[in-house]
Amino acid sequence: MEVRTIKVFTTVDNINLHTQVVDMSMTYGQQFGPTYLDGADVTKIKPHNSHEGKTFYVLPNDDTLRVEAFEYYHTTDPSFLGRYMSALNHTKKWKYPQVNGLTSIKWADNNCYLATALLTLQQIELKFNPPALQDAYYRARAGEAANFCALILAYCNKTVGELGDVRETMSYLFQHANLDSCKRVLNVVCKTCGQQQTTLKGVEAVMYMGTLSYEQFKKGVQIPCTCGKQATKYLVQQESPFVMMSAPPAQYELKHGTFTCASEYTGNYQCGHYKHITSKETLYCIDGALLTKSSEYKGPITDVFYKENSYTTTIK
């Protein structure tokens, strides 16, 4: 009895394709271990004539594949690729409408935090270190965002349907971005203890939790000093293409032309909904596939993004 075979390709990165001759009487799992086709788990399936010449994702289970996976995804987590594939199996079914010149995501599976993050990423200057993220990001900007969303979920250790947080998501993504040249110098002034300067680099240099107003941050924000008295913390120097200011959701007025974009969060910790506000020729609110415009805006804002380049204080 002759062994019926077909020729397929296996890959971990969709760049390096490895030619395989597979036995049609055995499952993919018996031949390769966990195997995925377009995100779908085909591990328990036997090869079919229609699979001839198709590319299958496999887990990096030998040295060659491990090197290829690390170079593309910059992670050695053995569960990463499987999590990416199972997320992709959902995100490829989502709709990605162009809204006001940006790629958004039609609401499904509690994905409003991903839509808000995706919209924000198209408006701030950011370059990702893992080629996987950078490639998928370019495709997302062009309207094909399924891979990018699935990668975000995998890097953030999230599953489809789980509630997510924009600030946490951005923080994970910033860790995989090139923020080497970003720098922030802060000064804390206390009447009792004097003053202390701190220099922050990388992710810490672009994120701040405690106030939404970048102007206020430049002037000074009140913080408790270690001595128990009130101290003032203010920005001395900022070198970065953008800054992200966050605070627990509270009524906040966004003035046209003073910011790049913002995240609105309605609801409580267990259950809520994100919308995205962007400042173009007027203010726009993007909620999944829905767009509304207004000249002014007041609502429960939790993150505001500002364009920056270089700032030095005039406070002496």
Rank of each mutant, 00 (worst) to 15 (best):
E2M: 08
V3Y: 10
T5F: 14
I6T: 12
K7E: 12
F9I: 11
T10C: 13
T11P: 06
T11M: 05
D13T: 08
N14D: 12
N16W: 10
L17I: 08
T19M: 13
T19V: 13
V21S: 13
V21G: 11
V21W: 15
V22A: 14
D23T: 15
D23I: 13
D23A: 10
M24C: 13
S25A: 12
S25D: 15
M26G: 07
M26R: 10
M26I: 14
T27N: 11
G29H: 10
Q31H: 14
Q31D: 05
Q31C: 12
F32I: 14
G33K: 08
G33C: 04
P34E: 15
P34A: 12
T35A: 15
T35L: 13
T35K: 04
T35S: 12
T35Y: 05
Y36H: 10
L37R: 13
D38P: 06
G39S: 14
G39V: 06
T43Y: 09
T43I: 04
K44F: 12
I45S: 14
K46M: 04
K46D: 13
K46L: 14
P47F: 08
H48F: 12
S50A: 14
H51C: 05
H51D: 14
G53H: 11
T55V: 10
F56T: 09
F56Q: 02
V58D: 05
P60C: 08
D62W: 14
D63E: 10
D63T: 06
T64C: 13
L65T: 12
R66G: 10
A69Y: 15
A69D: 09
E71S: 10
Y72F: 10
Y72Q: 12
Y72T: 06
Y73L: 07
T75K: 11
T76L: 13
D77Q: 08
P78T: 11
P78R: 00
S79W: 12
G82N: 10
Y84T: 00
Y84I: 06
M85H: 07
L88P: 08
L88Q: 00
K93I: 00
K93F: 09
K95Y: 11
K95A: 13
Y96L: 05
P97G: 02
Q98L: 13
L102G: 10
T103I: 13
S104I: 09
I105V: 06
I105R: 06
I105L: 09
W107E: 04
W107Y: 05
A108Q: 11
N110F: 06
C112L: 03
C112N: 02
C112M: 06
Y113N: 02
L114T: 06
L114V: 11
A115I: 01
A115F: 04
T116G: 08
T116E: 04
A117Q: 05
L118F: 09
L118S: 01
L118G: 00
L118T: 08
L119E: 03
L121T: 08
Q122G: 06
Q123M: 05
I124A: 02
I124D: 01
E125R: 08
E125F: 05
E125M: 00
K127T: 14
F128H: 03
N129I: 10
P131I: 07
P131W: 10
A132R: 10
A132K: 07
D135Y: 07
D135C: 07
R139T: 11
A140Q: 04
R141A: 10
E144P: 05
E144Y: 11
A145Q: 04
A146K: 06
F148T: 05
C149N: 08
I152V: 10
L153M: 14
N157S: 07
K158C: 03
K158L: 06
T159P: 05
V160H: 07
G161L: 00
G161A: 03
G161V: 01
E162T: 07
L163K: 07
G164N: 05
V166G: 08
R167H: 05
T169N: 00
T169Y: 00
Y172F: 12
F174T: 00
Q175P: 06
H176E: 02
A177I: 03
A177S: 09
N178T: 02
N178K: 11
L179F: 14
D180V: 04
S181A: 12
R184S: 14
N187T: 07
N187E: 07
C190F: 07
K191N: 14
T192C: 09
T192F: 08
G194L: 02
Q196Y: 12
Q196E: 10
T198I: 14
T198G: 04
T198D: 07
T199L: 07
L200V: 10
K201F: 15
G202W: 02
V203R: 13
E204M: 04
A205C: 04
A205V: 05
A205S: 08
M207H: 08
M207T: 11
G210K: 05
L212T: 03
S213R: 00
S213Q: 02
Y214W: 06
Y214F: 08
Y214R: 04
E215T: 08
E215W: 02
Q216H: 10
Q216Y: 03
K219W: 03
Q222C: 09
Q222R: 10
I223S: 13
P224K: 11
C225D: 00
C227L: 02
K229T: 08
K229S: 13
A231F: 02
T232Q: 07
T232L: 12
L235F: 06
V236R: 01
E239I: 13
E239W: 04
E239S: 08
P241Y: 05
F242W: 11
V243S: 04
M244L: 06
M245T: 02
A247F: 06
P248A: 09
P248R: 07
P248E: 08
A250F: 06
Q251N: 15
Y252N: 01
Y252S: 08
E253P: 09
H256N: 15
G257P: 02
G257N: 07
T260F: 01
E264R: 06
Y265N: 04
T266F: 06
T266P: 04
Q270Y: 14
G272Q: 08
G272I: 00
G272R: 04
Y274R: 00
I277W: 14
T278V: 11
T278Q: 09
K280L: 15
E281G: 03
E281H: 01
E281L: 04
T282W: 07
Y284G: 04
Y284D: 07
Y284C: 14
C285Y: 00
C285T: 13
D287R: 00
D287N: 03
D287P: 03
A289V: 07
A289M: 08
L290E: 15
L290T: 12
L290I: 14
L291K: 05
L291T: 12
K293A: 11
K293P: 09
S294C: 14
S294M: 15
S295H: 12
K298W: 10
G299W: 03
I301M: 04
T302Y: 00
D303I: 01
Y306K: 13
E308R: 01
Y311P: 07
T312Y: 12
T313S: 14
I315T: 15
